[in-house]
Computed example of a mutant assay.
Amino acid sequence: MLVQDQITDQNALTYFARRGVAPQWRVFLRAMMETLESHLDHGAREGLLRMVGARMASLMPLPACGTLDELESRMNDTLAIADWGYVQISLDVNNRTVMLRHVAAPMVGTHADLTGSWVGSVLEGLYGSWLGNQPGAEPGIHVRRVGPDGGAMLLRYARG
């Protein structure tokens, strides 16, 4: 893929992620996030947003899944209902890690976070709860952002 194609793809993903937030919620979300930014330190804000994601998971529970393919499909069905983009799951056997690539999360920027990357903390809580509630899940394993991946958010589910 050419660099120009990557830029176009990233711009398209960003466009669709911003477009995915209904106009009546865009101002509210920006005001809420800017209020949180001005009243909570970074760690407290991240923790609160993870709790919001975990609460979302409890409101949109997933059934027990037998394979990663089934889990990805169930997650994507649920994300589609909420218009929250989609996820691609891969397994890194050597590092005992499940990688999640979330595409087109609804993003609303703030004065301190123009890209709306705060949604990554919500995704950490959402995926952490969904994965933690699957059969055989071990306690103490968390989902954490690795960083942006083009126009997507890359997260990892692993110990430590």
Rank of each mutant, 00 (worst) to 15 (best):
D5L: 12
H39S: 11
E70Y: 05
R19S: 02
S73L: 13
L123E: 10
A64C: 10
L40Y: 11
G109D: 11
M56H: 07
G151Y: 07
D9G: 01
V3N: 06
T115A: 14
L155Q: 07
D83A: 14
L155E: 01
W84F: 14
E37I: 06
R19E: 07
V21H: 06
R144N: 13
S38P: 00
Q4K: 15
L123F: 15
M75F: 09
R30F: 07
W84C: 07
L29P: 00
A31F: 05
T78H: 02
D83I: 14
M1N: 05
V87L: 10
E70P: 00
D77P: 00
A44G: 10
A54H: 10
L13F: 01
R26C: 05
S58Q: 14
G53P: 10
D9K: 13
G47Q: 12
H39I: 09
F28I: 15
R19G: 01
P148I: 04
H42T: 14
S117C: 05
V98F: 04
Y15I: 01
M33A: 12
V103M: 02
Y86K: 06
T67L: 08
G147S: 03
D113K: 01
A152Q: 06
A22N: 05
S90T: 15
I81H: 12
G109R: 08
I89W: 03
G20K: 08
G85C: 12
R19H: 11
R159W: 05
D77C: 07
D69N: 11
D83C: 10
L62R: 09
L91K: 10
S58W: 09
E72F: 00
D69C: 04
P106T: 09
D69Y: 02
E70L: 10
F28E: 08
Q24E: 14
F16M: 07
L13M: 11
E37P: 02
N11M: 13
N76V: 08
S90P: 01
A158Y: 00
G132A: 03
E34C: 07
H42E: 14
L40E: 06
R18F: 02
G120D: 14
G85E: 09
P139R: 10
Y157G: 03
L40A: 11
N94A: 15
A54Q: 15
R55E: 13
A22C: 00
G66S: 12
M51H: 14
P61F: 11
Q24Y: 06
Y15N: 07
G147L: 03
T14A: 05
R74P: 00
V21R: 03
R45H: 09
V122R: 06
A12M: 08
V87P: 04
L154T: 01
R74D: 03
L91H: 12
D113C: 04
L62E: 05
Q6L: 15
A31V: 03
N76I: 07
Q24M: 08
M75S: 08
A82L: 15
G85V: 05
Y157N: 04
S38E: 15
S38F: 00
V108I: 06
